[in-house]
């Protein structure tokens, strides 16, 4: 009798773990970040479901980019960076000892604010992430490069000149190339730091369509200044203000019926 209860408990815990794994991809537990003595983030707790798009919004300097960069440990390069609390991906705390940063970044890709292709050919840009893993076989590279560029909706524009220098592409094409480059490594999470802020409206629309497509296979976290964009592409939205997560919830709820007054005045454009 007792054993069966324990067994049941174990089972249900196993089930829960499974459900958790299936739904929660990224978590942060009371996360705070310091640059030296300056606290730039505090007490951020967030759970992000797999295969969703989560937008992080808020005025400049509110900590949303810092929060984003916690998930692939890009803040590690900042002098005097220190964090408290837990940052968890797939149930693992990613700042604990023994975590290989390089391995982590193969799971968590990133697209930056300004398109930053390498000064190499289009092909080599996409192949880079594979070459550094030691994959140099031409047939394997050809296949993944083509697949990734197609996924990034750039194939038709560049298929005839993959040898061309990536810097000759337009800004919007460069950004899609950067997305292709990220996809080639086959991450499960993609972090986007204002990926369309340097682009014209047409390129922006293409990137947004792409984000919508990618949601099927990836968990996407996107920082944006543009609230209409957050409204268009995201399922959930988190509003940051002065280093704190003020409100986090369904995008529709945040935009139509925010719980916090701060959120409401930011969304309605009263500040920021």
């Amino acid at each position: 009798m007792i054993t069966s209860v324990i067994k049941e408990k174990k089972n249900s815990k196993g089930m829960q773990d499974k459900i958790k794994q299936n739904s929660i991809k990224l978590e942060s537990e009371n996360v705070g970040v310091f640059y030296g003595h300056k606290k730039v983030l505090q007490n951020v707790t967030m759970r992000i479901q797999a295969n969703t798009v989560t937008a992080l919004i808020g005025p400049s300097g509110c900590g949303k980019s810092t929060y984003l960069r916690l998930f692939n440990r890009m803040n590690d390069y900042i002098d005097n960076f220190r964090k408290e609390g837990d940052v968890i991906i797939d149930g693992n705390e990613i700042y604990k000892k023994g975590i290989e940063i390089e391995e982590l970044r193969k799971t968590v890709g990133m697209v930056f604010q300004k398109p930053n292709p390498f000064p190499k050919s289009i092909y080599e840009n996409v192949a880079y992430g594979l070459r550094i893993q030691g994959i140099n076989k031409k047939s394997a590279l050809d296949e993944i490069v083509e697949k990734s560029i197609k996924q990034a909706a750039l194939w038709d524009e560049v298929k005839d000149d993959l040898k061309k220098n990536a810097l000759t592409l337009s800004g919007g094409q460069q950004q899609r190339l950067c997305i292709a480059r990220t996809l080639a490594v086959q991450p499960s999470v993609i972090l986007m730091d204002e990926p369309a802020s340097a682009l014209d409206p047409i390129s922006t629309a293409r990137i947004e369509d792409l984000i919508y497509e990618l949601k099927q296979n990836y968990t996407i976290l996107i920082v944006t200044h543009n609230m209409q964009q957050a409204g268009r592409v995201s399922d959930h939205t988190g509003f940051f203000y002065l280093g704190e997560l003020v409100e986090f919830g369904d995008t529709r709820q945040i935009f139509t019926n925010p719980k916090s007054e701060k959120t409401e005045s930011y969304i309605s454009g009263r500040f920021g």
Partner: peptide, 22 residues
């Protein structure tokens, strides 16, 4: 540019790979 180094790191490159290849 710092952005090039960041891009390389973000793709999982080690420091030496980033230095030698970028």
């Amino acid at each position: 540019p710092k952005t090039i180094k960041e891009a390389s790191f973000a793709l999982g490159a080690t420091k030496w790979q980033t230095i030698s290849r970028q």
